[in-house]
C-alpha cells in the first residue's frame, strides 16, 4: 500500500491519465485514483477519509451528471457510486458506462439494502454492492481485487 505521506511530500508528475507516480523504496509506485460519486456530504467525507488513509488519490463529485462529465475527461482506476442522486442516478450512470463500453470497475455503495437492488446493480455491470456505511475492510478487500497491482 502506498504511504500517503510520500504522496504529499513528492512533486507528483502525471504519467498518463489517472495515475500519479511516486518514488518509494527505490521503485515507482502508482498512486491509485478513485472517483467518489455521492451527493451526501456526510457519506462522501466518510469515504474520502477512509480511502485517503489507505493512500488513494481521490476525485469527488456530487451527482451522476458530474460523474459522467468527469469520466469523459479523466480515467480514475475505480468509481465508488451512490445510487440515489439528483439529476442522474447511479443506475443511469451504470447504464451509460455500459453503453459507452467503459470498463472502469464500479463499486456501488448504497443505503438500499434490497437484494433486488443489489442484483440490478450487478446486472448493470457493478463489480460489487456495499451497504452504507461501508466498513473500511470491505472497501479495501474489494479494491485490492479489482485495482491494478503497483
Amino acid at each position: 500500500m502506498v504511504n500517503p505521506a510520500l504522496c504529499l511530500l513528492n512533486a507528483v508528475p502525471w504519467y498518463g491519465a489517472g495515475y500519479n507516480e511516486v518514488w518509494q523504496e527505490n521503485e515507482y509506485t502508482r498512486v491509485t485514483q478513485i472517483l467518489i460519486a455521492e451527493d451526501a456530504n456526510f457519506s462522501r467525507a466518510v469515504l474520502r477519509r477512509m480511502l485517503q488513509e489507505e493512500g488513494y488519490d481521490i476525485l469527488e463529485v456530487g451527482n451522476g451528471k458530474q460523474c459522467l462529465d468527469i469520466l469523459a475527461t479523466e480515467s480514475p482506476d475505480c468509481l465508488i457510486l451512490d445510487l440515489l442522486m439528483p439529476e442522474v442516478t447511479g443506475y443511469e450512470v451504470l447504464a451509460r458506462l455500459a453503453q459507452q463500453g467503459k470498463t472502469i470497475p464500479v463499486l456501488v455503495v448504497t443505503a438500499d439494502v434490497q437484494e433486488t437492488t443489489r442484483q440490478q446493480c450487478l446486472a448493470l455491470g457493478a463489480i460489487a454492492v456495499l451497504n452504507k456505511p461501508p466498513k473500511p475492510e470491505q472497501i479495501h478487500e474489494i479494491l485490492q481485487q479489482v485495482l491494478p497491482k503497483a
Binding site: 451526501a40 456530504n41 457519506s43 448504497t110 443505503a111 439494502v113 434490497q114 437492488t117 452504507k132 456505511p133
Partner: peptide
C-alpha cells in the same frame, strides 16, 4: 445534510 443521510441509511435499513 448529515441528518438526511443518517435518515436515508436507517430508513432504507427498515424498508429494505
Amino acid at each position: 445534510g448529515t441528518l438526511s443521510e443518517i435518515g436515508n441509511i436507517l430508513l432504507n435499513g427498515v424498508m429494505g
